[in-house]
Amino acid sequence: MPHEKLISLAEAVRRYTWDGMQYASGAALPVGSDAIVFGRELLRQNRKDLHAIFHCNTQQLNLLAAAGAVTRAECGFSGLEVFGFANGLRRAVESGRLALEDYSNLAIPLRLLGGALNWPFVPATVAIGSDIQYRSAFAPDDYPAQKKIPMVTDPFTGKEIGAFLPLRPDLAAIHVTLADPLGNAIILGTEWSRFELSRAAKKVVLIADALVDTACMRQFPNLVRIPDIIVEAVVHWPFAAWPQSSPGMYDADEEHMVAMNKALATEEGTAAYIRDYIDGVTDIPAYLDRIGRDKVEHLRRSSTSFLLDPFRQWLLAAEEVAP
């Protein structure tokens, strides 16, 4: 089996990230699939001053904000749904360490679409006439904000509409369910804006729960939402979205979701969380041990497991996928 784009998690962060970069991650809801393990490695390698772009806040942004790695962020939703507000993100914003620019859940994918299509700006018919337009965390003394969503004139009708700045992040670390070693990917469950993000980002690294033979991609070409031509590298990492869920693979770890958010509410709790769940957890066996092997098996017994059935015959064993 060729390993053209397979690299380790640590190498992906070393090769494709740097301090001060614009970093985006792909997620499906704040409790769904996100490349959270990539954010853990960003902290292990002490990346800082990141400008984060998330369609939805997840435990990754919550963690990066709590640890002080992010100084600017843009997202369309900042909560954690049933698990409450993101304590690490709130603490970073309230302390003044992080400027959080607020957009809507439609505005962010529209801005990513604009980046993907290389538009100079995105016509905005949403988020105008409200404080989403008038308030800017990046220019707090400018009210109403002049540069966040400026008004432009439609040349065909003469109507005044808004203009979004397209998003073109330096790197997108995108969680996918299945990838092959060439960089083709299949996403099970809700996709949200991972399709648009993969086309808008300057570079894309896939974080895959499982690897499959390329024959799988040839069997289901209509399901390949991210093709190899736009992917720089592939990282294989089971439970990459933990403690969040990956449809077809595992459920959310609700107990850890609560405990993690509670820990990130304080500097002391954040330091303890990093010590217990990030420092020294540098390979997959250690990572699964830290989650707990019994819990891993419990989370795998998901009611969505049937979604993986059409693809099981192409799943690659661990010894076949070492980068």
Rank of each mutant, 00 (worst) to 15 (best):
residue 3 H to L: 14
residue 3 H to S: 14
residue 4 E to K: 14
residue 4 E to C: 00
residue 5 K to H: 13
residue 7 I to P: 05
residue 8 S to G: 15
residue 19 D to V: 06
residue 19 D to P: 05
residue 20 G to V: 07
residue 26 G to W: 07
residue 29 L to V: 00
residue 31 V to D: 14
residue 32 G to T: 10
residue 32 G to K: 10
residue 35 A to E: 06
residue 37 V to N: 05
residue 37 V to C: 11
residue 38 F to K: 07
residue 38 F to M: 15
residue 49 D to Q: 11
residue 49 D to P: 00
residue 56 C to F: 14
residue 58 T to K: 02
residue 59 Q to N: 15
residue 61 L to T: 11
residue 64 L to P: 04
residue 64 L to C: 08
residue 67 A to V: 09
residue 68 G to L: 03
residue 69 A to K: 11
residue 75 C to H: 04
residue 77 F to S: 05
residue 78 S to Q: 14
residue 82 V to T: 14
residue 84 G to K: 09
residue 85 F to P: 15
residue 86 A to F: 00
residue 87 N to M: 15
residue 89 L to E: 08
residue 90 R to L: 15
residue 90 R to P: 03
residue 92 A to W: 03
residue 92 A to Y: 01
residue 93 V to D: 06
residue 95 S to L: 03
residue 97 R to V: 03
residue 99 A to G: 05
residue 100 L to N: 12
residue 110 L to S: 11
residue 113 L to K: 07
residue 115 G to D: 07
residue 117 L to K: 10
residue 122 V to K: 12
residue 123 P to T: 10
residue 126 V to K: 10
residue 127 A to R: 01
residue 130 S to R: 00
residue 135 R to H: 11
residue 138 F to S: 07
residue 140 P to A: 04
residue 143 Y to R: 09
residue 144 P to V: 04
residue 146 Q to P: 02
residue 155 P to V: 09
residue 155 P to I: 08
residue 158 G to T: 00
residue 158 G to C: 04
residue 159 K to C: 05
residue 160 E to C: 00
residue 166 P to T: 03
residue 168 R to A: 07
residue 172 A to T: 08
residue 173 A to S: 15
residue 173 A to M: 06
residue 175 H to R: 14
residue 176 V to W: 07
residue 178 L to D: 03
residue 181 P to R: 04
residue 186 I to M: 06
residue 190 T to K: 14
residue 191 E to H: 15
residue 194 R to H: 03
residue 199 R to F: 13
residue 201 A to G: 13
residue 201 A to N: 09
residue 203 K to Y: 01
residue 207 I to Q: 08
residue 211 L to M: 14
residue 213 D to F: 03
residue 223 L to M: 14
residue 227 P to R: 13
residue 228 D to C: 09
residue 229 I to C: 10
residue 229 I to P: 03
residue 234 V to D: 06
residue 234 V to N: 04
residue 235 V to D: 02
residue 236 H to C: 08
residue 240 A to P: 00
residue 242 W to D: 07
residue 243 P to E: 01
residue 244 Q to H: 10
residue 246 S to M: 14
residue 250 Y to A: 12
residue 252 A to I: 11
residue 258 V to N: 01
residue 259 A to H: 10
residue 261 N to A: 07
residue 261 N to R: 12
residue 263 A to L: 12
residue 267 E to W: 01
residue 267 E to I: 07
residue 272 A to E: 13
residue 278 I to W: 07
residue 280 G to H: 08
residue 286 A to Q: 13
residue 290 R to M: 14
residue 298 H to R: 15
residue 309 D to A: 13
residue 310 P to G: 08
residue 312 R to F: 00
residue 313 Q to C: 09
residue 314 W to F: 15
residue 314 W to V: 09
residue 317 A to S: 13
residue 319 E to W: 08
